[in-house]
Design a protein around this nucleic acid. Sequence first.
DNA 1: ACATGATCATCC
DNA 2: GGATGATCATGT
Length: 224
Amino acid sequence: MQPPETAPSSPQELLDRSYQIAGVTLGELAAMAQLAIPANLQRHKGWPGMLIEKWLGATAGSKPQQDFPELGVELKTIPIDQQFNPLETTYVCYAPLLSKPGITWQTSNVRNKLQQVLWVPLEGDRSIPLADRRVATAFFWQPNEQEDAILQRDWEELTEMIVLGDVEKITARLGQALHIRPKAASGNVLTDAMNADGERIRTRPRGFYLRTSFTGAVLHRHFG
DNA sequence: ACATGATCATCC
DNA sequence: GGATGATCATGT
């Protein structure tokens, strides 16, 4: 078995590819792809995601928007424990701190990214050596009406705070399903934002993340 | 610096 | 133990 060299031409082909690697360990996938396995993830935090991208035929690199633009599909690996509970929150996208006019939930990057997600759960318990962790069965997910409403409410609450110049009041405690946290290589990275008086300020870049309670519910809706 | 891929590590 | 805030690698 080898990684594909082309992008999948249909959602079904993408799903088929994910089934091909279900149950396989990350060590086996790395070996077949002739990739080195890091000793741990401390300095290779994105490694599992990159490995799965390669095996499903996502275009490499750090391009904006979805992983499979032609399919309208976003790929997300998610580390899980033995009960299929997520072990980490899920990064969605950067949070724009300089609001663009006319942006709504319907046109937001968050909604665009989450419109159609291929979830690929991976064994993530730190007690399992990285190479021994197995890929679980992937599945497509589209937010249902209720999930979309929750995400919309959170997004609107947080976006309103940014628009009102209250970005510094935002904490990760806000938001039922979606929240905002720093997202940067280090604490000294700064970007532009506005304060409540409309003045330019410098602040840490932020990202939108899905809480584990939300992704956990999504997983359990599919795996019971 | 921004954006991708995320997990780490500390605090509660 | 779990969530929050911080951080790591890489490419554009």
